[in-house]
Amino acid sequence: MNDVNTTMVDKYRNDFLKEVEENVEEGHWVKMCMQCGVCSGSCPFGPHWDHPPQEIFMMIRAGKRDEVLTTESMWMCTSCYNCIVRCPRELPITHIMHGLANYAHRLGIAPKMNPTRRFSAIFWNNITKTGRVNELALSLKLYFMDGFGNGVKKALAMKKVGIGMIKTKRLNPLALVNHKGVKNPKELHTLIKKAREIEDRRKGLAS
């Protein structure tokens, strides 16, 4: 069991709604949901979620902490913003979904193999390393994240697109060794570290 997670369970006991309010991005909006279900009806991925947003809000109020934080549901969100536009109570539902996903990830109890989570992690590491996305490295990392064999298969399937992109100078094969980042990546790293410290302190996550 993760340490931060245990701390939070101890801190909030049964009051998961309060935990969400205090730790999740835009979490204070959850209590304002009036259970009309427009968000669930508007979501283009609705039928594929285990728990559509309306249900997630209800589960939070019902104190179903583990079920909410370990579900893959909010990782399904594609940020189409249909729910935000339509919510009669003006809840920032998309942001809350991402907030919940992020919080679950920080606690270390988000589903390990969820592709969205894995992509996000790869993307984050890639962009923060130099301050600019190394697209070639990102693609390769994604192709090969499920092992060498799978990576070759995926790469071959995308062969035509890749060659096309090289021909039109949309992809530079040399970028693997010659990627140009921001001027001073060290400074960026310090900045991000500081920001994280501030946020962790605010949320009581600092160890």
Partner: peptide, 14 residues
């Protein structure tokens, strides 16, 4: 009035 109660933390369960 309903919204005000939600803000005050009254839980509404269907």
């Amino acid at each position: 009035f309903y919204r005000s109660a939600q803000r005050k933390g009254v839980i509404f369960t269907k």
